[in-house]
């Protein structure tokens, strides 16, 4: 018996999910952050964020097709984290890193928070 592992399968699947998002195919929720709106797939949001996992496993909320986030959330920070969810790449602009980290805390994305923390400490030891 043999087993063939396609080592780039996970990244190929993620790329296709991101293509589906950009073409708005089977997206099933709109995330409202202040006045900006983001279309996404609930399953991808749940897979990446503890907050969205909690929301969409709650039988009272799982059928919602629009979710408003706390107004303290920065839309740019959210956009960067949503992009990370669908690409595995986290863009860290100097001016946004605190907003990104705070948004990751809010979205309960602990591993991203830890990585941001280490990045900040390494780039600014003072």
């Amino acid at each position: 018996d043999s087993c063939i592992q396609f080592t780039r399968h996970a990244s190929d699947v993620l790329l296709n999910l991101n293509r589906l998002r950009s073409r708005d195919i089977l997206t099933d929720v709109t995330i409202l952050v202040n006045r900006q709106q983001f279309r996404a797939h609930k399953t991808v949001l749940m897979a990446c964020s503890g907050l969205f996992y909690t929301i969409f496993t709650d039988s009272l909320k799982c059928n919602l097709n629009a979710i408003s986030l706390d107004p303290k959330v920065d839309p740019e920070g959210f956009a960067i984290l949503l992009e990370f969810m669908y690409t595995s790449r986290l863009t860290l602009k100097e001016s946004l890193i605190i907003a990104i980290m705070n948004t990751a805390i809010y979205l309960q994305m602990d591993h991203v928070v830890d990585t941001c923390h280490r990045f900040i400490k390494s780039s600014d030891p003072s």
């Binding site: 749940m46 897979a47 990446c48 964020s49 503890g50 996992y53 496993t57 969810m85 595995s88 790449r89 863009t91 309960q108 994305m109 602990d110 591993h111 991203v112 990585t115 990045f119």
Partner: peptide, 21 residues
């Protein structure tokens, strides 16, 4: 992503969904 210095993070990136709640 040319021009941006890319740091490879080998650790876990996201939470693990439990087999059952």
């Amino acid at each position: 992503y040319e021009g941006v210095n890319t740091i490879k993070e080998m650790g876990r990136s996201i939470h693990e969904i439990p087999r059952q709640d």
